[in-house]
Design a protein around this nucleic acid. Sequence first.
DNA 1: TGTCATCTGGCAGGGTCTGACATAGATTAC
DNA 2: GTAATCTATGTCAGACCCTGCCAGATGACA
Lengths: 202, 202
Amino acid sequence: MGLRERKKEKTRLALLDAAFDLFLEQGYDSTTVDQIAGAVDVSPRTFFRYFTSKDHLVLWYHDQGEETMLETLADRPPGEPPFVSMTHAVRAVLRDMEQSTSEDTERFLKLRRVLDANPQLVASTIARGMETERRLTEAIAGRSGLAPDAGPLPHLVVAFAMAPMRVDIGCAATRPDLQVMVRRIEETLQFVERSLRPGWDA
Amino acid sequence: MGLRERKKEKTRLALLDAAFDLFLEQGYDSTTVDQIAGAVDVSPRTFFRYFTSKDHLVLWYHDQGEETMLETLADRPPGEPPFVSMTHAVRAVLRDMEQSTSEDTERFLKLRRVLDANPQLVASTIARGMETERRLTEAIAGRSGLAPDAGPLPHLVVAFAMAPMRVDIGCAATRPDLQVMVRRIEETLQFVERSLRPGWDA
DNA sequence: TGTCATCTGGCAGGGTCTGACATAGATTAC
DNA sequence: GTAATCTATGTCAGACCCTGCCAGATGACA
């Protein structure tokens, strides 16, 4: 990893940190892009080269998760049952969460506090989640050689595998601790796996 | 209804028509507020007195529905079981849809085509729907003398009663005909009613 | 008709986001 | 080590969304 990439990563994280801190201090709407860029000593124009919009800041982790899942799906063996592939995709995200640095964990929890304070951002997050489900459904359908709208099965596969994330991430009980959250999602995922008849996704 | 109110209503509908037509012609993003206002011969400043934002155009029917439901809830007798009140609220919206003029019906179906062409707007609609559920839940909880977060029951009452709308409005089969859609929602609502044990919402 | 409330237009301005171009810095090849 | 190349960044101009403010026009009402 060259110096250039390391600098970019550093700037991106600095922007996330500055933004979340400002959002918590003075609110999302009252914080301008100029302020965020100024706090990191970067031109506002550069901000938009890292994040496509102000909203994108709070959707960034979501983006990362989606990318991880799509990459994982692309690497799974062709003949694998679709639901099994999706469980691998979900677990890849869980592994990323487990292995995140303490700074990253803190950032993630800060984001959750920002979301708690700004319901409108929760709305964007949910909307983004729908888009993710759509893309995953396309990928799953493509792997099976099916048209994306040939039937509800691909979408159902995605919905079942993603349910643990939706349920446990939205759950207030796992709020302050990321490791607990990951463990709960894993447990719920195993519960879903046990609840389905073998071969149901054929 | 005085002349002033009639003129306002006319302007509002003209703005909706002009906007939807422009959205279908040249896309949502490529259409500016200036164009919409210009098409109705109204200043851009006035546009924002009718609609709080460009998005608001596509959320307007949703707003109407929410208002109808909240008003209906306020008028229901105090002791009524909460789920019964909610079914009345949903049916009030269905009656509005049934009794709408042919122009209004056409406008509604045009909106659906706009949504089909712009997934991002579907996202806003879904986000708006969450907000509506939250407000309805507050209203239901308030009627029962409960705190909004005393338990999942109020939210569940709302979710069950709204499910037919979410299911059948999202359903592609009822796309071109509003009366069919209303009938399907009514049937699904009756199915939900039959599926619940009497007194479940006590 | 005259007064009052409300609607409207115009203007100024803040905030988000994008395209174009030049420069400084990192990377690669020699 | 130097030169050529590629990439990130800053600056600038500008479109668009949205809002506050004030003055003028229009409907409501006595």
